Amino acid sequence: MILSYRVDRLLAESRFHDCLVFAAEELLATHQEIPKEVRYLSDLQKWLLSQATLALHFEHRLDPARPPISPTNLLRFLAGTPIASRNTVLAFLNEMRHYGLVEQIACADRRQRMFRARPYTEDLIRRWYGTHLEALDRIDTAGRAARLRNDPDLIVYAQTRMARLMLSSSGWCHPPSSVGLFTRAESGSNVLHELAARAPWHLPAGRVWIGPVSASGVAARYRISQSHTARILAAARGAGLIGWEFPGNRGNCWVSSDFVIDYRSWQALKFSAVSEAFSQAVARAG
């Protein structure tokens, strides 16, 4: 049986630190490898739109009577959440089509535009999900990632269930202000992972020293604008989340313990949903 984890159990488990560090390193490495593709996960709104779009696609695969991807259907999927307006949804799907992540499908009503995810896009979400399963395996060596590799179609139900869990989680969609400062910014999640994952599991009170951090170094690693990165770091510094030994952001960097705790609590919501959805997918597959 594949275990699932409640948020409180994850936060009480010291090996959750290994899980978080592994996931952060893998996600950041993926950004360096395929920056164009992962820009669709570069802020929380795009992350949620991407997951909802793929969930629509997979639900239609599970049951062709369910609606496929379309602007109207995506808005219905997001009903009850303040995630995106109709114009945002239209722009998002147009961009996904432009970059070849979805393709238009035939529809009897030519006024409607229906889409499906391309196989490459399915591979991308399977890779993302597999990274999180491998991170969870750092806790209990349950072999989740190997199970997905051996049965790739598990992603169809697992991602759908996970997406619905995440969309119903107000704590995930509305993260703490310390986390939201990063997730609202384009590519801010990369900076967030890099800073928070450097902290040790056992946190001292107040400041946690994490070594050198510079806007130029972060920008170069993730191929984002140095000025944009500097603005994110400046906003975090102004909020008291980070600081440096010396003026001008020189010397070693520190992050606040409260900021790291907020990050871990927010990430635990995601990992709990990933574990629960995958456990249900495995049970459903028999």
Rank of each mutant, 00 (worst) to 15 (best):
Arg161Val: 06
Tyr157Lys: 15
Leu136Thr: 02
Ser177Tyr: 04
Val156Phe: 04
Thr131Cys: 10
Leu167Ile: 00
Ala185Gln: 11
Leu167Ala: 00
Ser177Lys: 14
His193Ile: 02
Trp172Lys: 07
Leu154Ser: 08
Leu148Cys: 00
Ala163Val: 01
Asp151Val: 03
His174Gly: 02
Ser178Gln: 15
Ser216Asp: 03
Cys173Thr: 11
Val208His: 08
Glu134Phe: 11
Ser168Tyr: 06
Gly206Pro: 12
His202Cys: 08
Ala145Lys: 07
Leu133Gly: 04
Arg147Pro: 06
Ser168His: 10
Asp151Glu: 13
Leu167Met: 06
Ser169Pro: 06
Leu165Asp: 14
Pro212Tyr: 05
Val179His: 07
Ala215Lys: 07
Pro200Phe: 02
Arg221Lys: 13
Ile210Ala: 13
Trp209Glu: 15
Gly130Lys: 14
Leu181Pro: 09
Gly171His: 03
Asp137Thr: 02
Arg161Lys: 10
Val213Gly: 09
Ala158Met: 01
His193Glu: 14
Tyr222Ile: 11
Pro175Asn: 14
Met166Tyr: 05
Thr131Pro: 05
His202Phe: 13
Ser169Ile: 00
Asp153His: 10
Pro212Asp: 09
Met162Gly: 09
Glu186Phe: 11
Ala197Asp: 02
Arg127Glu: 15
Gly180Glu: 08
Gly180Asn: 13
Ser177Asn: 05
Ser177Trp: 04
Ser178Met: 03
Pro200Ala: 08
Val191Asn: 12
Gly143His: 08
Gly211Pro: 11
Glu186Val: 03
Leu165Tyr: 05
Arg198Ala: 01
Thr183Ser: 09
Tyr222Pro: 03
Val218Tyr: 01
Val218Ile: 15
Trp209Asp: 15
Gly206Ile: 08
Asp140His: 14
Asp123Gly: 09
Phe182Asn: 03
Ser187Arg: 12
Asp151Pro: 01
Arg147Asp: 10
Gly171Phe: 01
Ala158Phe: 00
Val208Phe: 13
Ala199Pro: 05
Met166Trp: 02
Ala135Ser: 14
Ala220Pro: 02
Ala142Cys: 02
Asn190Glu: 13
His174Asp: 03
Gln159Pro: 00
Gly143Leu: 02
Pro200Glu: 12
Ser177Arg: 15
Ser187His: 13
His202Trp: 11
Leu167Tyr: 00
Met162Asp: 06
Cys173Arg: 11
Gly180Asp: 13
Thr160Asp: 14
Val191Gln: 03
Thr141Leu: 12
Arg138Gly: 10
Ser170His: 12
Leu167Arg: 00
Asn190Tyr: 15
Ser187Met: 12
Glu134Thr: 06
Ala185Tyr: 05
Ser187Cys: 09
Trp128Ser: 07
Gly211Thr: 12
Val191Glu: 10
Leu195Tyr: 07
